[in-house]
């Protein structure tokens, strides 16, 4: 067995990541696929209040931003407090346009700026899964955001400036794997949202995507994921990248924590081996060709 597949086998075994479901329109399959979409989208990180032992996807997690503190909504199937009453079309509109069923605009603390890149089928499956999530009849706190940022209409202007709602378009000159990685990083898994600096209005610095952010609103240092800027990450191998996304362990023996700890637990740690390989490939760490002599 090659070193690589040996390590992968271990990871799959130890962490029991789910295997990718085959597209099928059967309800059961859609729900299963939707559950995986929830994992790659990292919904749990922000919509389950683990710290206060909140229920699955019932919201209430505080998200500090320079503009005030946002509280994530309840996205369970509850018809009053959750999103159970929404149609699939309303859900897709919220995810890809940042517009709620009542026509109001979301603040970009909700990363619809990335979710806009999500495939329609993934969103349909995700809604099918969310419909099965146990209803929690619990309201969430109002956002604590002072004037003028509390004006949702202001978001119309913001969107005009910073929101690109074009769907994901694969680069035909790159491999299927690279494109899958590009889709995950810029779309559902929204890695770009944290690993990129923002301007004073909270828009992503699109010219420096993934170049890191020295100080997030929570005071957290977020490393660069570029391999061209001499970052720590530039020295990581393909296998190092996969291992750390799956286990949280860096090549130095440290463990990723802070907000990335949640990403590892809820998102990358639940990804299939193929999806992690795709991310590593997109981040400039392609799978090494197996060298004949080096075997276990």
């Amino acid at each position: 067995m090659s070193k690589h597949s040996y390590a992968s086998g271990f990871l799959a075994l130890a962490l029991m990541s789910s295997s990718s479901a085959i597209a099928n329109n059967n309800d059961e399959d859609a729900i299963k696929r939707g559950k995986y979409v929830m994992d790659i989208g990292g919904c749990v990180s922000c919509h389950t209040d683990k710290k206060n032992k909140g229920q699955h996807l019932a919201g209430g997690v505080a998200l500090p931003t320079p503009f005030g503190t946002f509280y994530t909504p309840n996205i369970t199937s509850d018809e009053k407090y959750g999103i159970g009453a929404w149609t699939t079309e309303q859900f897709i509109e919220a995810m890809t346009q940042g517009v709620a069923p009542d026509g109001s605009h979301y603040f970009p603390a909700f990363p619809y700026t990335s979710y806009a890149k999500m495939k329609r089928q993934d969103l349909i499956d995700l809604k099918a899964y969310l419909n099965t999530v146990e209803a929690v009849a619990e309201p969430t706190p109002d956002h604590d955001v002072p004037f003028p940022f509390n004006i949702r209409e202001g978001m119309i202007v913001w969107k005009e400036l910073f929101f690109d709602d074009s769907p994901f378009s694969p680069d035909p000159s790159k491999s299927t794997m690279w494109n899958r990685g590009a889709y995950l990083v810029n779309g559902p898994s929204h890695c770009v949202e944290c690993h990129t600096s923002r301007n004073f209005l909270g828009g992503l610095d699109r010219d420096n995507l993934l170049a890191g952010e020295p100080k997030s609103p929570e005071g957290e240092k977020i490393p660069s994921l570029l391999i061209s800027d001499g970052s720590e990450f530039s020295n990581w191998s393909h296998a190092d990248t996969i291992f750390s996304l799956q286990m949280g362990m860096t090549p130095k023996g440290d463990f990723l924590g802070g907000s990335m700890g949640k990403v590892v637990t809820n998102t990358t740690g639940k990804m299939t081996e193929e999806d992690l390989q795709a991310i590593a490939t997109y981040l400039g760490k392609p799978v090494k060709k197996k060298s004949a002599g080096k075997r276990d």
Binding site: F10, L13, A14, L15, K51, P214, K215, E218, G219, E220, K221, I222, P223, M247, G248, M249, F255, L256, G257, G258, G261, K262, V264, T265
Partner: peptide, 27 residues
């Protein structure tokens, strides 16, 4: 070997959990 791998993963989860809840990278 297999048991070692499983136990290693279990140990890693503890490192991750503590670093997620009680540590924040700063400049």
């Amino acid at each position: 070997k297999r048991a070692v791998m499983m136990q290693f993963a279990k140990t890693g989860k503890i490192c991750s959990t503590c670093h997620t809840d009680f540590r924040l990278k700063k400049d």
